[in-house]
Amino acid sequence: MKLSPEEKRIMDKMQPGILTVDGFLGNDTRNLHEILQEDAETIEAYGYTAEDIGKRMRYFTERSKEAYEEPILIDQKYLVQQDIWRGKVVCPFPHKGLYTKADIHLKNIENNIEISWTPLNIHFIEEHGFFEGKGSKHRIDPETIIKALF
C-alpha cells in the first residue's frame, strides 16, 4: 500500500537525528502501517491488546518510582529500576504531548527475561500500537515483552 502523506510525515519524524539520535525505525525497511499490522497480529495471537501491555508497563514504571532510581522488587517477581534524565521528547505522531526521558529496566526473575523501555515507548504502545521498527534501539519485541510482563 502506498504511503499516505500523514504516514510519510510521521516516518520522516522517526528518522535518526530528528527527535532522537537513533530515531525509531532502526533498519526496518517496512512502512509504518506494515510494522503496526505485524506487531498487532503478534500480540493478538497471544490474546493481549496493546492497551493491556501499555497498562502493565505503566504499572511497573510508576511502582519503580518509589525507589528513586534504585532497583525495587515488585510483586516478588519483577526487579525494576528506573533512570531519569533531564529533558523531554515529543511523539512523532501528530498530537500534543511531551514525554520524560527515562529508561525503565525490568528483569522477570522467574524466566530471566530482561527488557527496557522509555515513557515514550509506553505511549507508543498504548496509543499507537507501535513497538518501533526492527533494529531500533528501543524496539521491544511484542513476544518478548508479553513473556516478560505477564
Binding site: L19, T20, V21, D22, W85, R86, K101, D103, H138
Partner: peptide
C-alpha cells in the same frame, strides 16, 4: 551538561 542516552544535544 549530563549525557542523555540518545539525546541529540548532549551527544
Amino acid at each position: 551538561i549530563r549525557r542523555v542516552p540518545d539525546g541529540i544535544c548532549t551527544t
